[in-house]
Design a protein around this nucleic acid. Structure first.
Lengths: 139, 139
DNA sequence: CAGGATCCGGTCCGATACTG
DNA sequence: CAGTATCGGACCGGATCCTG
């Protein structure tokens, strides 16, 4: 029992140390920005819509499906995700112009990696709500 | 080949839809805040130090090991993590006062869930750097 | 020792107006 | 249609000073 506890603890230490050691300071900052993509309100939502759709989507269709986002923030979000290589932006020079966004393989991989964590948090949401309620009442 | 692609796509849709459907709007916001804990600069670092240590740590020891954090932000970070039930705060009413912070089982679980994603991002950091470089040069 | 109070500069966001 | 440009307000982290 105690043994198991210590094993888990030591695993953490090794794992975290191993990850930190392989990264330069710049890379560490970059990895934090990438993790930030899943915390922000919109990026994960946008990626999900594209994944659900299963193919390219125009700006306006995206704007419809990501409810509540302003067009400015949607543009920013798409630029960030494009810069990180998670989706592609294709401009068709027509009048009126047409622009299509599509998930890259890296973007799909990213979603695959995020899902388990998201699912875990969703499954334990009650536990977290209880913890907060208890903390807030203790004031 | 194409078949596999569609399977993966459909898996995403199902997965994401399933998660979203089970959450109220408030719970959705809460889950985003929790994911935010791993994106912020300090929370994951603090949890890691506690995990590495394997036992309770005083405020000042924590402050030493989380290099660069201000005492104000460390206090804020610890309050948030305590509120979310990821660590405990124990005050020993002495003079001078002593306060110890320790990971909860939920906190350890949380770290366990986050590690795979963190590792994946670290492993693909080069890919992301290349994507950014390419994007930035295309301007 | 641990952390509350305060001020301050940077960032993010929505709203609005305009354009190829 | 799909943006860019701009402005004002809200929020957040950092540094500094103070206290039971």
């Amino acid at each position: 029992m105690n043994y198991t506890y210590h094993m888990v603890t030591i695993d953490f230490a090794n794992e975290a140390a191993a990850i930190c050691d392989t990264l330069t300071e710049a890379q560490d900052a970059l990895s934090r920005e990438l993790l930030d993509r899943i915390a922000g309100k919109w990026p994960l939502w946008v990626l999900n819509v594209l994944a659900e759709n299963g193919g390219p989507l125009r700006f306006s269709r995206l704007h419809e499906r990501v409810d509540g986002i302003s067009q400015k923030v949607l543009t920013q979000t798409l630029r960030h995700l494009e810069r990180d290589g998670l989706l592609t932006r294709t401009l068709y020079p027509q009048v009126p112009p047409r622009v299509e966004y599509e998930l890259t393989p890296l973007g799909r991989d990213f979603l695959l990696q995020v899902m388990p964590l998201w699912r875990w948090v969703a499954e334990h949401i009650q536990t977290f709500e209880n913890a907060r309620r208890q903390f807030d009442q203790a004031r």
